[in-house]
Design a protein around this nucleic acid. Structure first.
Lengths: 239, 239
DNA sequence: CGCGATCTTGATAGGGTTCAAGGTCCGTGG
DNA sequence: CCACGGACCTTGAACCCTATCAAGATCGCG
């Protein structure tokens, strides 16, 4: 169950066998979460951090007037709430966007790692830093890009991240979000989401049917998105 | 020069004298940066992390079509690029929004801390996690709040953060951004920024003149913003 | 086969952008 | 000491992107 996490961490730096064992022993249990259920709920003070093994999940916040904004999308190999290890209280909910399989890392075990395995600690820290880098790119896309560019950027990001954990199939990937959920990611209405999407389909850049996104013209998509994957830190170097 | 940093870290957890000394010995030099100059430039691979001693700075990204989006505002006590310690390459620029005084922490020293001072390491990690929490709140505000609410939220956030490092004066604080810069924070046009602001002034919620923001009706501002400061983790507890 | 969820489309309204111009403030130099 | 220029703020008007409301179409599942 740790394969996707190892794949991702190894995109950043080498992982020793000992470190793999440390992670393996920090992890325990396996849980299935049905679509629509919270993996972790807002305001809770978890004593474990949840690691995605399979499926899609999202961090989200609800606003006073009934709106929802998704602030992150998580896939296999992602810790959905590693930050709660130190933040203690979760400032957002985490919902399963598809049936999910997850496993748990005890905070006591993470604490042990932070006490005795500095390099592994830095890699976990880095993982949360990449979360932050992704957040920043979302902010830029929301604030200063067209909605088309924003959508294109998100698709590029997801493709690169999914590829790293072997969840792509050629130029396409399974993507089980509804258009309403996607609208909550981009911060737009569902109607507009649909219209932006259709322009993409008509232009032949991507298709998105049957919960499958297929990229037909990567270079054009990347150009529309103004996408540079550097921020994901998928370059193996000493950390 | 470390006072603001200590104040902020102590909002999260107790700092031992030894940890203060470690930080003090990690820091060296002092630099003044003129308004408009980059503290650190995009794409660089810094070997030090820059700590704000005085002034205001912003992380920003430029888009292909000439736009600018500010993704974070930094004040005294903030590391503007602590994440570059592990990310290695900076994915954004950092500009001085006012004359700034900064000091530097060598990455080699930070690495030593991460090897031998686990609790302090966790506090530094936490500092970057709070950055992430702030990012998430910006995303929510950009995506699902009115521009008035977004502005209100930002002012609440800045007030609480500045108060933690003793940079407030009663219900007001020095705030040297221009309206154009503020527009680049919120992701709106400068004209609209001005109009949102004026509605606030006329409603008597805040005033913003002479580079000074004064909050006249905190509870109303907080209500408009739907602001809950929990995400800043200013609750001292073991981390 | 029928129903709910999702997707699609049309029409209307409003928030926000852009363009443009006038006003204010302040530092600089004559 | 005052004129000048630049940066910033303010205001108006037209236009466009996007939200909202509403209804019809399609899909998937029991």
């Amino acid at each position: 169950v740790l394969t996707p996490l190892f794949l991702k961490l190894q995109m950043h730096d080498v992982l020793s066998d000992h470190e793999k064992q440390l992670l393996a022993s920090a992890i325990s249990g396996q849980r299935r979460v049905s679509i629509g259920d919270d993996l972790v709920s807002e305001g809770s003070r978890p004593t474990v951090s949840t690691l995605m093994v399979e499926g899609f999940a999202a961090r989200y916040k609800l606003t006073a007037d009934g709106g929802r904004q998704i602030t992150a999308i998580h896939v296999a190999g992602d810790f959905v709430d590693l930050h709660a290890f130190l933040l203690k209280q979760l400032d957002h909910g985490i919902i399963a966007l598809s049936p999910c399989v997850v496993t748990m890392a005890q905070h006591t075990a993470l604490r042990e790692i932070s006490e005795h395995a500095p390099h592994l600690t830095r890699l976990l820290w880095l993982d949360t830093l990449v979360d932050g880098a992704i957040h920043r790119n979302w902010i830029v896309a929301m604030g200063r890009r067209s909605r088309a560019s924003q959508l294109a950027h998100l698709i590029c990001e997801l493709y690169v991240r999914l590829k790293a954990v072997h969840r792509t199939d050629g130029a396409s990937f399974h993507f089980p979000l509804s258009q309403v959920e996607m609208a909550d990611v981009l911060g737009i209405s569902a109607v507009h989401m649909n219209r932006v999407l259709q322009r993409f389909r008509k232009a032949g850049v991507i298709s998105w049917v049957n919960q499958t996104v297929a990229i037909h013209d990567w270079s054009r998509l990347q150009e529309i998105a103004d996408f540079d994957p550097t921020y994901l830190s998928f370059a193996r170097e000493p950390r």
